[in-house]
């Protein structure tokens, strides 16, 4: 089957993504720059303590960072630089923003990846089981716990895990050890609590989505056809029902990735002291380090947009009926 329309569609979506990213960039820029704070603020105490003239010093610092110019000029400068691949200079860490992101993204990535895998794998399995056993004790139990899972504040869960497993039982360190090599058992062990913290809410969500998507399809006529062929129940559920349930499931999972994962990962990184982009952005906000704030927001946005696009494309292969115009 030809997918020739797909290329045009992707182009359109990419242009659309750029427009949205530009919108978000602008909003963030305005928010950061109209704020009543300036990059010089953090030096004020030092300047005053050093007996210098505060106004003069502030002006000097602002000139140094280019924030004394009219906001429109700053905006134009920033956009121009961005297009040349220059994301700006991080005041608070004294390095180019691109450098900063290069060193830190991997920590966010490993956390989100492991949590998603953990949550999706278990969540889908439990969801399928729950749907197949609808209205049994097992189903009720899983449903109840999925409610618990989506209701438990993940930052609190993180603290409770630290309290029980680190403080009381001493099984894990309370803080993520940044000196560990990335691909090592120790690193995996250090990530156990963070992954549970971030993954539990996702897991609970996946259980619920999978269950309802499976239930939507379990009573369809084609399932009876599959059984009438003499297929074992494993194939009926795993192939015929699940392939159909997968479609809505993928949309929801991808959709959630944007909000739950980024919000949740942010907090999880802060609780466990994981130096990922969430932590970086968090520190940058408090340090008024606006190029970093904008950059991280932008990266988050791009990932969401990209994931949405990939979802749509995957969809066309999973659901032959789909055609975007």
């Amino acid at each position: 089957m030809g997918k020739s329309w797909l290329r045009g569609y992707i182009t359109k979506r990419l242009i659309y993504a750029v427009i949205i990213a530009w919108g978000i960039l602008t909003v963030t820029f305005i928010l950061v720059r109209v704020g009543p704070t300036s990059p010089a603020d953090r030096y004020l105490a030092n300047i005053a303590a050093g007996g210098h003239d505060v106004t003069q010093a502030v002006a000097a610092i602002e000139a140094r960072y280019g924030v004394d110019k009219p906001i429109l000029v700053q905006y134009a400068d920033y956009m121009g630089n961005l297009f040349q691949g220059n994301w700006g200079w991080s005041f608070s860490t004294s390095m180019p923003v691109t450098e900063l992101i290069k060193t830190h993204w991997i920590y966010s990535f490993q956390l989100i990846l492991l949590s998603s895998l953990f949550a999706a794998f278990l969540g889908i399995l439990i969801g399928i089981y729950s749907a197949v056993k609808q209205y049994t004790k097992a189903d009720y139990t899983f449903t109840f716990f999925s409610f618990v899972g989506i209701s438990i504040p993940n930052f609190w869960l993180g603290i409770m895990l630290i309290l029980i497993f680190s403080v009381k039982l001493g099984l894990f360190k309370t803080y993520y050890d940044t000196t560990l090599p990335l691909f090592s058992i120790d690193n995996l062990k250090a990530l156990v609590l963070p992954v549970i913290t971030l993954g539990t809410g996702m897991l609970a969500g996946y259980v619920r989505y999978t269950r309802s998507a499976m239930l939507d399809n379990l009573r369809k006529a084609f399932v009876t056809t599959a059984r009438a062929k003499g297929l074992p129940e494993r194939t009926v559920i795993g192939k015929h029902v699940f392939r159909n349930a997968l479609l809505p499931l993928i949309t929801i999972i991808m959709f959630d990735l944007g909000s739950i994962v980024f919000g949740g990962a942010y907090l999880t990184e802060i609780i466990f002291g994981i130096p990922g982009l969430g932590q970086v952005s968090f520190n940058a906000i408090f340090a008024n380090d606006y190029p970093v704030v904008i950059a991280v927001t932008l990266i988050g946005t791009f990932i969401v947009l990209l994931v949405n696009l990939i979802t749509d494309i995957t969809y066309t292969y999973l659901d032959p009926r789909i055609r975007y115009d």
Partner: peptide, 10 residues
């Protein structure tokens, strides 16, 4: 109903 008796994604 042949429409619903066939699996739409296979």
């Amino acid at each position: 109903e042949a429409q619903s008796a066939l699996n739409p994604v296979l």
